[in-house]
Design a protein around this nucleic acid. Sequence first.
DNA 1: ATGTCAGGTCATACCTGA
Length: 280
Amino acid sequence: MRIATYNVNGINGRLPVLLKWLELRKPDIVCLQELKSPDERFPEAAIQAAGYQAIWHGQKSWNGVAILARAALPTETRRGLPGDSDDLQSRYLEAEIGGLTIGCLYAPNGNPWPGPKFEYKLAWYKRFSAHAKKLLAAGRPTILAGDYNVMPTELDVYKPERWVDDALFRIEVREAYAKLLKQGWTDAIRTRHPNARIYTFWDYFRNAYARNAGLRIDHLLLSPDVAPLLKAAGVDGEVRGWEKTSDHAPTWIELAPAKKATSKKRATPVKPAAKKLAKR
DNA sequence: ATGTCAGGTCATACCTGA
């Protein structure tokens, strides 16, 4: 099972690129960010024709998130983060799909630092973390996928010293992300590739993609019961080189099918007993 | 500091956000 996150940077402007990638990789579940489209202009027919059912939370001009699933309708469980009824920005959508809880997020950019946009980013991360903690407490297999707008460590930036005062790399935001992971989430890409320089975003400026001057800011976080199912993780970097493409590349994980809870319960007490017998 | 996109408008030239 393949699950991907992709900041499309305008779903209508990038629709040919999105459809080409869906056809090429056929992911089972896709989280999209930066739709830049109001709800009524979401290209539902084209997405359906590509074999996906979708739910979306749009907004005029900016932001916007969607969840796509192949041959299954995502059951919406949440629209928007709790904790601030005045927040009108479309940055979070959550659904149940085949026993998995999928949270699709688009964290605020937060630039320029310092300023009100940066403060909004920190406040958003607090609300997001509080919600993530509740999801862990609920004990269901969960994946939080999206554009986190943070490079977690220096390994995730082509030139860290240039980014220290940028809202994507400010220590406050890196700490917020680290604190989130400490709840018990697994950063799928970094876990599968502990030492590799892997980027998910390349600026449109300064020929960044050709120079591989990139950032790793799109992440898939796995709850403790999903993490053992992780088989592979990667970035479809070549998509960033296509015509009229987003500045992000699709980022994905491959999961093994979940084992039934009943067989797991039966297996655990048997194994240690068998080992003890073998020792004696 | 520079630079490139997309969306939107007191629109065909500029503004914002990223």
